[in-house]
Structure formats: C-alpha cells, structure tokens
Amino acid sequence: MAVDMKTIEHLCSLSKLSYDEEGMEKVMGEMGSIIDLMDEIKSFDLAYDDTKDGNEIRFADTREDVPEESFPTEKLLANAENTDGCYVVPKVVE
C-alpha cells in the first residue's frame, strides 16, 4: 500500500517530527514498504479478546502509598541545562 503525503504529514504531526522535502519523499517510500509488511497481519482472521490477557497489574501487590525519602533535588537538576534552584525552560512565545 502506497502511503500518501497527507498521511505522512499527519503521522509527523502526531509524532512531533518533521522532514525536509527530500526527507519526506524518502520516508514516504520507506513507510510504504513497512506498511506493506504490516498489512500481512490483515489476513489473520481471529479477533482480540481482552478478557484473555491476564497480564493486568494486581493492585493487591502494589506498595502502600506512604511518603518516603526521594532523590536530592540538586542531583535531579544536574541534568538540566539551566537551573536556578528549579528547572528553567526556554522562553517561548506562542
């Protein structure tokens, strides 16, 4: 199945990605081949039964919701580009 430019633009929007004109042509071809491969699954004729998964988290096993010591703030902020005792994000004007 060929993928059209409109679909790729929609996927880029959902994915928060973009390509230049040349990149767009390339990724359109690649995604077309990949989706052809994924389309093989359409010939499988069983439906998903969400009652049969049995992989849900058992909430009885979760830990108690009690406060405990966490990471030191300075250590968490060490990866931030700009800090002033808190996390500074770049100024953006919409």
């Binding site: 996927l11 880029c12 959902l14 990724v27 069983l46 998903y48 998964d53």
Partner: peptide, 21 residues
C-alpha cells in the same frame, strides 16, 4: 511514525488490536 500509525484513529483496530490478537 509506525507506532503512531498503528495507534491512530481509523487504523487502531486493523493493526494494533489485530497484533494483540
């Protein structure tokens, strides 16, 4: 891109749920 394709409106049942089946 492929992941968002499989999860996006109109394709979710045909791809993602089929994969779970």
């Amino acid at each position: 891109l492929l992941g968002n394709y499989a999860l996006s409106s109109g394709y979710y049942d045909a791809y993602y749920k089929k994969a779970l089946a």
